[in-house]
Design a protein around this nucleic acid. Structure first.
Lengths: 216, 216
DNA sequence: GTCTATAAACGGATAGAC
DNA sequence: GTCTATCCGTTTATAGAC
């Protein structure tokens, strides 16, 4: 077995186990057993359990974030993109991964939904992986809702992140494809749903102009 | 020290540690040390580490869910409530807890945002605590958007849950109160923001009527 | 009820043979 | 590069004294 094959088998096994049981609840022993490799291989190839996690997340999210930024670059080269266009650049790449490989890569996407707490163990590694993408899209989205104050803009972006986390976690299994469904059509429908929901929420009138109209 | 005092000190200490470090990363030793009680007290009073967690969640969420249902009962007794009214009954109780006791109870609210995965360890316990409330509000919200198909209704409720998780987690610390802010005013503003965002998203036109209009 | 002491198992990591 | 064997700290849980 080559070096890369061993690494890939470990990464694949760890991805499934982390998604199913969580990071702390998954032992190195369980990973190497599931991968069919020796216990010492994790430390040999990744240095530590933490190193394995870092490589695991980077393997999946570096390509996604690169595609997101490339899409945003292409949009901004043509002028000021619409809110829907920015949202599509943000959501489409990760939704495609989530839908098209639910047993492998898609599981990893689920994991990250649980790793957003301020003092969580892996915040530093994750922060570095997402920092550049996060800054670019925060700025682009804020330019799409200039009529709101900064506080309201940021709060609504927080809600947007929540929707994305909810999509990734998919606690009710809505994203399970039916056997006979047209995959590409299904993906487009879900994408359109998410964008419609987020665009409407982000464009909702400011509380400064409609605060007292929300009852009945 | 009385029986109840010991239990409360353990619950308070566990709540803070779970919120900060997560469940698996927090040892019984750390909890009993922080609580100033003996190591054996956790197993004596709660049976196991799992039993402690169950009691911990129930202590905070049973009152919240009771208030949510009481609010919904009161609304439905008067007729068919508006979407905004149902959302307020759902969000206001938990937001109040999240804001008014950020160091104690509010932290527990953060924890649950990480415990929504299908096969997560505590899904059964959490599911039982939230099941009744979830069913009531799912039905009430769906009656507010009858023009959508069932699939779209459920998907948008999934997005709604995502926003609530994002609010509870508050990864950017937006909910940290400034020292000089008017607490009640701040809470009303945040509540109005969340409701406005969710109501707009839930009411967004169906993809059946506007699917191809989303590009700039 | 509370405590000390300890059981029994599991964790990540590594040394050294091959 | 891969493997076996092992180190050593930590974990939950419990038995039994007080």
């Amino acid at each position: 077995m080559t070096r890369q094959q061993t690494k890939d088998r470990i990464l694949d096994a760890a991805e499934k186990l982390y998604a199913e049981y969580g990071f702390a609840e998954t032992s190195t022993r369980a990973i190497t057993h599931a991968a069919g490799v020796n216990l010492a291989a994790v430390n040999y190839h990744f240095g530590s359990k933490e190193g394995l996690f870092r490589d695991l997340v980077a393997r999946r999210f570096d390509p996604i974030n690169a595609e997101r930024i490339a899409r945003l670059d292409a949009l901004e080269a043509l002028g000021e993109p619409s809110l829907e266009q920015v949202l599509e650049a943000l959501v489409a790449p990760i939704l495609a991964l989530r839908l098209n490989d639910p047993r492998g890569a898609g599981l990893l996407v689920q994991i990250t939904g649980r790793l957003t707490s301020p003092k969580q163990t892996h915040t530093d590694e994750l922060g570095e992986i997402f920092r550049k993408t996060s800054e670019r899209f925060m700025a682009a989205l804020r330019r799409c809702i200039p009529e709101l104050g900064e506080r309201e803009q940021l709060w609504r972006l927080n809600c947007t992140i929540g929707v994305m986390i909810g999509t990734m976690l998919d606690p009710h299994g809505f994203l399970q494809k039916e056997a006979d469904s047209d995959e590409l059509h299904f993906e487009r429908e879900v994408l359109a749903d998410i964008i419609a929901f987020l665009a409407a929420g982000l464009r909702a009138p400011s509380r400064n102009t409609s605060q007292e109209t929300r009852h009945g």
